[in-house]
Design a protein around this nucleic acid. Sequence first.
RNA 1: GGGCGCGUAGCUCAGCGGUAGAGCACUCGCCUUACAAGCGAGGGGUCGCAGGUUCGACACCUGCCGCGCCCACCA
Length: 844
Amino acid sequence: MTSRSVPDKPTLEGLEERWSAVWEEQGTYRFDRSKTREQIYSIDTPPPTVSGSLHVGHVFSFTHTDLVARFWRMRGKEVFYPIGWDDNGLATERRVQNYFGVRCDPTLPYDPDFTPPETPGKHEMPIGRQNFVELCERLTAEDEQVFEAMFRQIGLSADFGMIYTTIHAESRAASQRAFLHNLARGEAYQAEAPTLWDVTFRTAVAQAELEDRDRPGAYHRIRFPGQEPVCIETTRPELLPACVALVAHPGDERYQPLFGSSVRTPIFGVEIPIVAHRLADPTKGTGIAMICTFGDTTDVTWWRELRLPTRAVLGFDGRFVSEPPPGIDTTSARAAYAKIAGATVHTGQQRMVEMLRESGDLESEPKPIIHPVKFYERGEKPLEIVSTRQWYLRNGGRDLPLRERLLERGRELRWHPEFMRARYENWVRGLTGDWLISRQRFFGVAFPLWYPVDTDGNPLWDQPIRPDEAALPIDPSSDTPPRFSAEKRGVPGGFIGDPDVMDTWATSSLTPQIAGGWVRDEDLFARVFPMDLRPQGHDIIRTWLFSTVMRSNAEFDCLPWSDVALSGWILDPDRKKMSKSKGNVVTPADVLEQYGSDAVRYWSARARLGTDAAFDPGQLKIGRRLAIKLLNVGNFVLGFGATEDAGAITEPLDRALLAGLAAVIAEATSAFEAYQHSRALEVTETFFWAFCDDYLELVKERAYGGRGTAQAASARTALATALSVLLRLFAPVLPFVTEEVWSWWQEGSVHRTAWPADDEVRALAGDGDAEALRATSIALSGVRKAKSDAKLSMRTDVASVVVRGPQRLIDLVQLAAPDLRAAGRVGELTFANGAEELRVDVTL
RNA sequence: GGGCGCGUAGCUCAGCGGUAGAGCACUCGCCUUACAAGCGAGGGGUCGCAGGUUCGACACCUGCCGCGCCCACCA
């Protein structure tokens, strides 16, 4: 861009559109891959879920990242700053279902002529898997346009030519490759085991995706007949047919005589043992609990450690299976089970309670309680536990050396803020099992495996067939494994493809590999990996951060990045978390429209990392005001025809200004280096307002030339130098307005200009003492106060002023006496040593 | 139950061993030729509570109280 003259009436309107276009055209933020690893600052950017709505939280946290990127770019680093979209996974599936009114039925064939209904019908239309995936791809492509437009609007200095998506072929290839490596090294394995299961989505879920929700329930006291009848309390009486034992604490004297004996379940008459286990809590209920397969994760532990039989009753759909489990074989027992077969858990419970009440085995009426129940974070019904074959990745949950290694990685990583490390350690120490990565879903990265089918038509799950890595990505449901022909699919002696997809985090955990070009572009990868920074929200430490560390540790035996920056949450002005259901969501579009991008960025930059911030229109106004002020100051300073080499800086006040500015540069720089952008902004902003209100007023007349050419030149050079430095210090926070002002007098983009160097400015300041400006400002304030108290205009002439104070300060103010006289319109200005603090006596 | 963070002016927050800070809001003024979407001045806080360390504590230690978040095997 070329230098232009200063406009008559500067305005913020239209800056976003203009400069976004220029940056795109000039390639201002384009990544130069010829640079070496040492010259590069690489960022593992978070790919937002495009199927979610845009939120001011996005603006907030992505601005934090951009501040870092812009700072390091100006420090001379080539910044690797890709943008990604997370489009694979359940969020997209749900959005597609709602948007088009369809659902995926993988048994249906592909229909090449399929077009979705104009408007979603009352009932979801079943469509084949490939048609469904195509709709997912179509809708995410649209969503991604919206996200990209917003990211450009807020001025992210990413290279939009390096966009990656998690469902793209290259991502799928990377994900499948990493999995195959995990498999080869023994880090991935499959197991048939009780699994947390979401009955709505009909998929297994991982520990990291769980959340507790308080739900109403009730204690049911049930009597188990036997030589010695035993009473238990349960919130899940419907699982009585799944009961395999009763359990009490080994030290519980009430039940010690019963250990080793057995009782029969009421209604079903199944004989079950009474066993002891340390996890049984004598203080809960009656102190003895029934173990069912499976009511909760403790049941699983008991079942496994006590080697109990399995009596599963719930199916994948969350309903009671049609056939009773083993052990229920008497006519009456089967008749009782028939009453709940096919029922939902809810209905089953009602019927079970009726039966118990009739049989007299319900000791007392249910006691209602509110208790925490495990849910899949996206689910609507409580999780059940069903036994299924799934793939797992070792994550230290069952492996002490690996856990220690991953904890060590957490200590190696530099956390901003530091205290967030505790969340990582908490999570790793609390892992109860390996990472379940298979999902019984459709829009995701397929497991790159097939299984032989034996001559009886049974899949040989433990003999997976792997593809050639060069062929990745593959889709086992349509691609054919090596040494097989396509007709052999699903027939005895043939093969079948793995039907599952991977947990979306299994792909997201590879963002450094995906964005950095692992295998696909090893030259690039060597220049950017391991990366410098992972920016992200603190809510996904247990998922994204942990899993990325884990994958990098496995594949490369190193951390994926040296630093992690955690942004806080955005709360509404009442400090409640914004959510759609609360109706308190502020949309970025409205805010950006109303206040402008720089103002919104200012608001973001004011918040420290790791700290939740309330959405605050007040802060946005201040940001907008700051941006306008920069325009006006730029306009004013450049109106003097000022340039940075107009003449030597000789006047003490000018030198004082630059001495103070040098200190601000030093502080802002070290703050940015320490990922404390809010501190950098604060010191810059404070200095800037003092520059406007005091320094500018003090030197205005001199700069106009009222007291000689050399004196004017000194002021003009200082003004221009300060403007240049301040624009650069503000550039990361306010990229649009700083670029605008910069363009009035400088060549090239401010964003590709060197970050100011404090030693250079200090050299210009010479013997300047920053204290001189502060002291003179205090004296000026005294004069202003006198006028203000007298309710007079600041233009009013003052007869005489006496400045009193300690000699050291008097000496400093005296150096700027002519400037002080001019700014205060003071007739006679005298000085007197004496007072402890600087003060002025004004005679109007 | 365990962990982490926070509690400073009406609001949003900074500060962090040496006499309480900013912005907003509020009050009183000012058309002052960069800016009235501006400028000047002012009022306002026993820094959650209680102990302790110290010459000195808003800051460090201990214990409480309150709020928020994370985690937990929640019959």
